[in-house]
Amino acid sequence: MVDPRLTVIDERLKGIGNIIAVSSGKGGVGKSMVASSLAVILARRDFRVGLLDVDFTSPSTHVILGAEDLYPEEENGIIPPRVHGLEYMSIVYYSGNYATPLRGADVSNVLIELFAITKWRNLDFLIIDMPPGIGDAMLDIVRLVKKIKLLIVTTPSQLAFETVKKLLYLLSELNIPIIGVIENLKMNKSKFIQQQVEGKNIPFWGEIPFDIKLEEAIGDIHKLLSTEFGKKIEEIIDANVKLL
């Protein structure tokens, strides 16, 4: 018995230049904010961009983007709808506002199904918003997506960075490219994270200060990108994406 879906994933992704998974060891560090902003900012720079939310049990990018009343088209597969210039794919098209409790094997199956049936157009970037940690989704992403690159988000908290260190170690062991680390929710001037990251010969993309006004901009991407968070991440992306 063979799962035929696995053999078609490379074909589905062949028209995509860069596939970047935004990940962290911990939840609550701002991965979805960074992933959504990264995708929209790249699209505003005239890149062809897709955003895929694979945090299946707790998807949130649709809330950040204010993406409502969207549904994929069916055309020999699933064609992601467009929002803010992005091709956008999320499980919420099917689960709505209901809870979707999934165990590990189910998470793998959803991931494989979405990669097998989603027909992305030719893209310069596909940004993937990951769930936290180094569980099934991470292991499957690095198994299934041959050209995956990781962008890691941490906070200054030693609790967050302790888990990020494990993630960085795992990715290095697996020879998965880490394009950079972003330090989010910064509230002091410490250079500890930057030194730790650069000490591992991993690019430190920059730090984003804690922005108390960010919460009220959720759902309005234009407002979000004009916050302190938005301006800083735009600066970080412009400085680093050209290096990819």
Binding site: V2, D3, P4, R5, L6, T7, V8, E11, E74, E75, N76, G77, I78, A116, I117, K119
Partner: peptide, 14 residues
């Protein structure tokens, strides 16, 4: 016609 995508997967596997 999402069946088409699954059929492509089968043909690819075979």
């Amino acid at each position: 016609m999402h069946e088409w995508a699954l059929a492509e997967a089968v043909i690819s596997a075979v």
